[in-house]
Design a protein around this nucleic acid. Structure first.
Lengths: 199, 199, 199, 199
DNA sequence: ATAGCACGCTTTTGAC
DNA sequence: GTCAAAAGCGTGCTAT
């Protein structure tokens, strides 16, 4: 006979486990529904849910993991001829040099052939942006450029300079600032199905 | 009564379907096993199976799909400040400009501020590579550089130039040419677990 | 320019979505961990987690769904000769008769050939259980039988009688009542790998 | 330098692995397509594909595995009161008795209360089937009964007798023998969605 | 202690 | 769009 207050019987314990798990599964399902709802809302606003999923995955990775993953991908892609014009990233280079040696980035004494720390003069107007030494300045300038309606290709910073990316970030962020409808650039084209194998 | 030679009975037809499916499933399982074996072999040679899976996924995508996917990722990353120094790619720029306007690449008359079609002189030696106008030349030079033992950071082509990527490809491909053991750069570090959240 | 208090910018809205989803994912992961912990606990007590998972799946199905599913399975199995000694269930019979006609169960006027509503006299002792008309009585008797140490094969109710199952239930439930260690009957044998194909 | 005829370079080996895997994936996809086609064909003939999938799963299990799995399920179900009128199977009983003792099936000297080896007289006609001692005879009689148009509930064998299942098998198999359209009993009702939770 | 193995969970892919 | 099946992945044993 079962003693009241004691879940001593095997069947009672089994039932207890199962009911507890069922309750937790119920909660889990509720959360999953909320996630779906949020994604549906984002989709309704024009965002691309697959991209969002990918970004969440990347954000979950630590910076070190992400760098390692990208470096490895780059190296393997290079071996297969899949770089497609994208130059090898810094981390990949560091790996190719033996992991310990400093990557000799753009500040390398050997020449810094392309990237300079100085802003680029606009060859048309001859006007030079003031020496925005910080990355944050570059970001603000990118936002300003977007507000002014200049083209995104007018980014004054050289490839490889972090301020170039910051300027791009500011530009992109600003380009949707006014709460208007999502620009078409953020939307996926529906029919980019089969355009030519990659092999 | 079942007529011999005629699979007329319902039960016979059912059995026939099931046995046919089972045979196909058997074949499918054999192929899956072969795939696993191949991956295990690659892993045994030091390759990273996760990276291989990712590359296979990318190769299955058409070039157009891949470009669109990368462009959207870049734009969303820019809006979140996740560019991490990587400049916006050409396709992303094209999207931000309205899809129709030409992206004004390095040949843009407005300035081509960094990328030039001319090879970069090595500032140390003053020696200038002959004007390797083709991408294939650049790749061959990259292979030669790897054979000569020069560092990968000596890539003479500017950022944004496709020949820069080609040089990298040649360098990486050559760096493992002699059939020796896989260089450590191709291997994943085991303990890059938690090095600092990205959030 | 972003208006304070208004998440009007596209980038802000995107970030808001992503952070909300990340928070929900975090909660979901916590629940999943609790579920794993509960299953580990059950496993530690000797229960078979795979069986528990299967039971949870069955409990999630409605009774009608389960009946229809089992009936169809029985009919198909019969056609393939896979009944393995298990007689066709009531729902399957009902289906074979045209869905509307009453299944003519054990109470069928045609003869009720085997199952009767009367308890079975123990042929050894001649003693007859009092007419336990309710299913609950049968369950209690099963528990009592387990406590008395009689074998489970002494179930006095005929096949097809719901009280037979109830007696079994009571017996099984009671057999673990005293909070002792789980009997070995509840545990899976480790090496029932390949004993002979079913085909 | 790459030696011709030797896939010695790392990049070549990588490419070889990837191409081999891609080829195998291609074959796998073809087989999967054939399976889908076969299932579609079966579906077109009126069979229920989900049931077919389940049967294939069961046939893939060895007899021993299936018996152990079903026995454990029965015991756990009994403890939870989920037997739903189905009596405990032989294997489950064997387990409850300690695994070594013989299950004391219907031939148990203690009483064999319901199942007998003798055929059951039809109470209406008083006619008794000749003592069909073999299971195959029972199956043939089931087929004959289906041909004669008698109801499936006229199965003369008692519950628990393997010949009862064999009779059912013969009946079900015969009921579709003439290659006619699949009887409705084999089809799933479309709207047995939610009829009442099992919890 | 470490390496191989098997289990269960998650995610992605395909079917309906 | 919803759903289930399958494959990849991490993890925990186990056996050496």
């Amino acid at each position: 006979m079962t003693t009241p207050g004691h879940n001593s019987s095997v069947g009672d314990r089994l039932l207890s486990h199962i009911q507890a798990i069922e309750a937790l599964l119920e909660q889990k399902k509720e959360i999953a529904d909320e996630i779906s709802a949020r994604k549906a809302q984002a989709k309704g606003e024009g965002f691309d849910v697959k991209i969002i999923n990918q970004l969440i995955k990347e954000r979950a990775m630590s910076a070190a993991e992400r760098a390692e993953w990208q470096a490895l991908l780059d190296i393997y892609r290079a071996a297969l001829g899949m770089l497609d014009g994208t130059p090898l990233g810094d981390f990949a280079k560091k790996r190719m040099m033996g992991e310990d040696e400093e990557p000799a980035t753009k500040a390398d004494a050997d020449g810094e052939p392309v990237a300079t720390d100085d802003p680029i003069a606009d060859p048309e107007t001859g006007e030079v942006d003031e020496p925005a030494s910080t990355v944050e300045d570059a970001r603000a300038q990118g936002r300003e450029a977007a507000r002014s309606g200049v083209s995104i290709v007018k980014n004054p910073w050289p490839y490889g300079d972090p301020r170039r990316a910051a300027w791009d970030e500011g530009y992109c962020a600003e380009s949707g600032t006014d709460g208007m409808e999502l620009p078409p650039a953020w939307r996926r084209k529906k029919d980019s199905k089969k355009g030519g194998g990659a092999e």
